[in-house]
Amino acid sequence: MMIIQTSALRKCFGKIEAVAGIDMNIEKGEIFGLLGPNGAGKTTTIGMLCTIVRPSSGAASIAGYNVVKEPALVRRQVGIVFQDPTLDTVLTGRENLELHARLYNFPSRIRKERIDQMLELVDLKQRADDITRTYSGGMRRRLELARGLLHRPAVLFLDEPTLGLDPQTRARLWEYIKKTAQAEQTTIVLTTHYMEEAEKVCDRVGIIDHGRIIALDTPQKLKETMGGEMIVVRAEKQPLEKILALPYVSEIRENDGALEIITKEAHRRLPKILSLLKDVHCVEMRVPTLNDVFIKLTGRDIRDDTVDDSGSWVDSVARYRQRGS
């Protein structure tokens, strides 16, 4: 069953086309990742699905409700964890959840039980009655996760949930996200530009660039489109025709001064390939990552574009447009 369906969903801000027509179907119960650089249109897409941003054209529905015509019904079906923290830092953790439960008109007789359950799920029971101002970044994120799921939404949106957290906290948060999604049987749609993390968590990913989805599949299938494993070689400049002529080599690219040779069964082909190369400084063999897929599809590294996390999306759009053209 499709829980989210969009067709030609589009959003313009003035002359800038932030989302340029997105068609996607997301199945009930899956963890779906929208991957792309800042300004690719991820947040705007989520905004439209949550009824915060009004689409310029196209249609979208969540759990069968139209986001433009039935926003109130859609809102009851979705939970959101925003990119920027939105906890009420004057209130305690428990009070934040109580406020949320009331706003979503969660039945009062099971409210307390439900709040305790969610606090337990994100391991915040000990700190539940402390003011959230005293929480660490990771704890705040976990509480927001609990809040987003409190009213049993059909879909939980997580916009860059690990942004600004240190790697260790990020890894733990993903554990919580997977755990809660499973416990609550919620469909999760998340955005991130941490490709490695998305790869581990998501059932399917959509790669979005300049407001368009340019690839959509399971991480495994997307990586298979690379046509094999990668042998990354640093060597002096030299002719490569002989290597390219090998039947099992599908592609050779230059990236950041290194040669990336894409081949099937790299571990068996490595000796032959190396024998055809002169002056090799170092060699590395690896399976392609989603980031490699992204580079292949867009011609650039997602990380090149994500230096400035704080930049406004308008700046980002302008920047990417320049680079992309």
Partner: peptide
């Protein structure tokens, strides 16, 4: 500015 209102404004109210 602190985004406190944001979470309230997206509620079905």
């Amino acid at each position: 500015k602190l985004d406190v209102l944001k979470a309230i404004l997206v509620a079905p109210v």
